[in-house]
């Protein structure tokens, strides 16, 4: 303590009238520090909030055209649109329907096994017929169907924003099925 006092006294004596402490205090360093810290914290907070939102969003279009009705063969389960749009298009004897590629158990993407003639989920083994009806494994309800219709240019148009659930009677809705008309 005594040493510090002596230094302070020496500073005043040797200086030009103001000591170092007073010189420094004349600048608003403390204010600047508070501003800087607040700014830094706000920046970190903003960056954290930004981090909660994804950089890339995987959002395939909800409405899309998949080609002419004659492009599909009877009895075929088309997996061509699985990667791009997330639907399987099935052509049965009477027409078309689009199944959404989300397992109704916990949301994995099942595989179409053509040789076994079924959809099979790799996560917990749920199995679905080509109609979408669940018959094996834990899935509690059938796959969901998307709205399907003919566009003006003759192509088939699928609308995934409209979903039809079997257990709610949705498959009886005419929009869930597109009859084939030659």
């Amino acid at each position: 303590m005594a040493e510090a006092k002596a230094q302070k006294a020496a500073g005043t004596a040797a200086g030009t009238g103001t000591n170092r402490r007073e010189f420094l205090a004349s600048f608003p360093f403390v204010t600047a520090a508070w501003v800087a810290m607040t700014g830094a914290l706000a920046g970190v907070g903003a960056a954290t909030l930004r981090f909660l939102y994804p950089n890339v969003l995987y959002e395939p279009p909800q409405q899309f055209k998949i080609g002419l009705p004659t492009d599909f063969q009877v009895g075929e389960v088309s997996t061509a649109f699985k990667d791009r749009f997330g639907v399987w298009v099935v052509r049965n004897d009477e027409g078309f329907y689009a199944l959404i590629t989300v397992c109704t158990h916990l949301g994995c993407t099942p595989n179409w096994l053509a040789t076994e003639n079924k959809f099979k989920c790799p996560c917990h083994g749920s199995g679905f017929y080509s109609s979408g009806i669940n018959f094996e494994g834990p899935a509690p309800r059938p796959l969901e169907r998307a709205a399907i219709a003919l566009a003006d240019d003759g192509q088939i148009q699928v609308d995934k924003s409209q979903k039809y659930l079997f257990e709610q009677g949705g498959w009886d809705d005419p929009s869930s099925f597109l009859p084939f008309t030659a």
Binding site: Y58, K82, D83, G86, T101, H105, L106, C108, T109, P110, N111, C121, P122, C123, H124, G125, G137, P138, P140
Partner: peptide, 30 residues
């Protein structure tokens, strides 16, 4: 890839018991 689930798709080892239970029960139960 959201459109490609690995086959088989396995939970981390410490959750494999739960994944197995999920096969036998409704998802909200298991």
């Amino acid at each position: 890839n959201p459109q490609l689930t690995p086959n088989p798709s396995k939970a981390p080892w410490y959750f494999l018991g739960l994944q197995e239970i999920l096969v036998y029960f409704d998802p909200w139960l298991a």
